[in-house]
Simulated assay, not measured.
Amino acid sequence: MALTKKGEFWYGTTSGDIQAELRSYSIANRHEAVRFATSKCDCGCRHFALQTDEEAGVAIRTCTDCGQEHLMGDSAEHLEEAMPETHECVCENEVFELVSGVSVHEGTHDVRWCYIACRCVECSLVGVFADWKCEAGDAAAFLAKV
């Protein structure tokens, strides 16, 4: 793991770097992420296009190999009111490695806040691209669907 800062952005080389940036961001947000999961398609690919609507609490990842769309976490429950927008890196690339993290309510395993962090596969920029308050129940079940 080697997060390095270039200008105003952080860059990394591994999913561990993504998780480190997510954790740092979540601490600054006062809802520290304590559970994490890396996205992986059924086909084995780990690179995705990402669409989110933070207001609705919806995230959709699309596999760059097989094209399968996957509603992340509890997004299926909120899709009707969502207007997801595609994420783009500062280098204009739209393909990312994704790590999701959640904070939980004290003394429980219930999700309190959701974060989605990305690493651009072109320039290696690392950052949290979406986060929202989330009352999704059990953290393990939620993260199993990212």
Rank of each mutant, 00 (worst) to 15 (best):
V102E: 05
C45P: 03
C123F: 15
V95H: 12
R119P: 05
C123H: 12
A49C: 12
A76F: 12
L50A: 10
E106K: 10
E81T: 10
G107V: 08
V128P: 02
E55S: 15
C63N: 09
Y115L: 04
F129N: 15
H78T: 02
L50Q: 10
H109E: 15
L50F: 14
E85Q: 14
V58W: 05
E106H: 09
C63W: 08
I60R: 12
H109C: 01
E94P: 01
V121R: 10
R35A: 15
V99M: 01
C91V: 08
R46K: 15
H87F: 14
L50Y: 12
G57M: 01
K133T: 00
A117E: 05
A130E: 03
D110M: 04
S39D: 00
F36S: 14
T64S: 14
A37T: 04
S103C: 01
R61G: 03
T38Q: 04
F96T: 06
E85S: 13
V58D: 08
I60K: 09
V102G: 04
F36P: 11
S124Q: 12
A130P: 01
C63A: 09
E106W: 03
H109V: 06
V128I: 05
C43G: 07
S75K: 04
F48P: 05
V128S: 06
L71D: 00
E97R: 14
F48W: 04
V111W: 05
D65C: 09
E92H: 14
E55M: 11
T86K: 06
S100E: 02
G57Q: 08
E69Y: 07
P84M: 07
G127I: 01
G44E: 03
E88D: 09
I116A: 00
I116C: 00
E94T: 11
T62A: 09
A117D: 01
L98T: 03
H87S: 09
A56R: 04
G57K: 05
T62G: 09
L71S: 02
H109S: 09
V126S: 08
C45G: 06
C43M: 06
T108E: 03
T38H: 06
L98E: 06
C123I: 13
G107F: 07
E85A: 12
E77D: 15
A37K: 07
G67N: 07
H47L: 10
M83Q: 13
